[in-house]
Amino acid sequence: MNNALKNRLIDRVFKYFAILSTLFGLVMLFIFLIDILNQGLSRIDWSFITSLPSRFPGKSGILTALTGTIWVFLLTTIISVPIGVAAGIYLEEYGKKSRMANILEINISNLAGVPSIIYGILGLEIFVRIMDLGASLLAGSLTLALLILPIIIVATREAVRAVPKTIKEASYALGATKWQTIWRQVLPVSSGNIITGIILALSRAIGETAPLIVIGALAYVPFVARTPMDEFTVLPIQIFNWISRPQKGFIINAASAIIILLAFVFIMNGIAVYIRYRTQKKIKW
């Protein structure tokens, strides 16, 4: 076998390996989706979404869990996005390259890998007890914001770094200040990647249970939260609670709640893709 043939063979083998790897993830996801839809779809109706928790699986609903999840999602976005993006821009554009900056950088990357329950313990001490916010929506959202900040910061930095230097230099050459360059050139170009990072981070936050249970999020809340200071529960806690119950009906309820949570994340992702598409269409160099 000559060299060219051998290389072609390797090329082909790699191609099939890559296809297999892609299929592995997709098939697993597919099996999971079929299983969940099969179990839970029949249970979803309007009353499932608008009912309070109950000891009867058939009467039980997710009203407070779903509204809690929406609250947490909105508050976490409001808190984490400005801070995360600003920190990312500072580290990439303003911060000086020093030993301190290096240590900071390594720490932020490491923070992204800390188990989420640790953030729960931190949140319990700082937000719930020292800042005296109680087991409120605000305390929960602040905790989740901390949890996803490292992801947003890293994503922002990478997005900003990918903007060609020539663009920035051209902007300076025309007399723009640093702020004008960042706001009018760097951010619009990198916003697509930043939004992707934010969405991945928020999707993670929405699925978290452990840190919220630690800060004292509840399982049974018979009223819809009106202010950020109200107590709350979220969908993952409701799912966790239902899955551990002995009665079959609750397992079906859990599957239905998982479908709702998935749909919520899908819609969120859809909106993000749309925003990204719109912003990127505007870029004309």
Binding site: A135, L218, A219, P222, F223
Partner: peptide
């Protein structure tokens, strides 16, 4: 009466 229950 608002009764809330946690599972910690």
């Amino acid at each position: 009466v608002k009764v809330t229950i946690g599972i910690s």
